[in-house]
Amino acid sequence: MAGQSDLNMSLFSPEEIEFMAEDELVEIVPNLRMDSLNFICGDYGPFHPQLAAQVPLWLAVALKKRGKCTIRPPQWMSTESLAQVLELERDSHAFQPLPFHYLEISRLLFDHAREDIPDMYMVRSLIEDIRDVRFHKVETNLEKFTASTVTWKNMSAMEVNIIRAFAGRALQAFYKHDNEQQAPDTDRMLDKQPQIPADRPKHNLKPR
């Protein structure tokens, strides 16, 4: 039990990750006139009909829901670019560069702006395939790591979040056992495990 008690506190919920993704900028084409919006999170607009503007995703979705704009899907969400990413993703061990929040952004656009996405079904199935290939990679990567620091290029927010708890604890265990031999006293301070000395002999029975 020790060590996992703060799991819920330090984990980001999917909703919180989506909240962060909603701050990513997208391009909209408004169909109304509106003065500049001076938000706490920044200034946007002024808006003129048919003139593209950059706004955070949450604002785009809010305007879209009220029928005040169309959203221009980002360039990486085109079928050509996704098909290429999928191919590369399948061929290589590395993660292809996609926006950190690619899953959340595409999901929000599918939910709220489906008619603005050309070939929506194709795009959606491509993104699902990419997601599956990448998750599979994440899982195979988990079998491999052993070092005390592990790096990932281009891993996305949701992917990171999925492995956070498991990988974090696994690495912590590696680290602890690696350091046990050199400095057997470092983990005396473990929380909720006051009686360390009692199980010390058990550890010594398994030489590494």
């Binding site: 956070r164 990988a167 974090g168 604890r169 912590q172 602890k176 473990l190 929380d191 909720k192 006051p194």
Partner: peptide, 22 residues
């Protein structure tokens, strides 16, 4: 403390700085 014979405050949870973060 667990008992008065404990030398340190061994019933106090301490933040674990060896937690892995991203």
């Amino acid at each position: 403390k667990q008992s008065i014979t404990s030398e340190e405050d061994d019933m106090v949870p301490v933040p674990r700085l060896d937690t892995f973060v991203i």
